[in-house]
Amino acid sequence: MSNFEEIIVSKQAVPTFAVVILALIFGFGLFLVGYDQGHLFSIIQGAEAFDDLFIHELTHDMRHAAGFPCH
């Protein structure tokens, strides 16, 4: 007769896939809040996005408060 036992196994290796996903999110979020000047919306909106600056205005107060250089 066989016995079943359960043990907790610690796997320290950090998955490369997770690191890549998190690194992409880090770069994208940092750009969006800190540096976008219409670039993201220009993909669908065209050059007009650089005048409208929707993301810039949305993140404007956080941009100043978090220490990013602004206008």
Partner: peptide
């Protein structure tokens, strides 16, 4: 109003992105 309204949303985006970097470094 748009700028003030964006504070919390921008906080969530920035927090998530810096948190992602923090998570990578914490794991290692």
């Amino acid at each position: 109003d748009w700028q003030k309204g964006g504070q919390v949303l921008a906080g969530a985006i920035l927090g998530t992105s810096v948190g992602a970097l923090f998570g990578i470094i914490f794991a290692f």
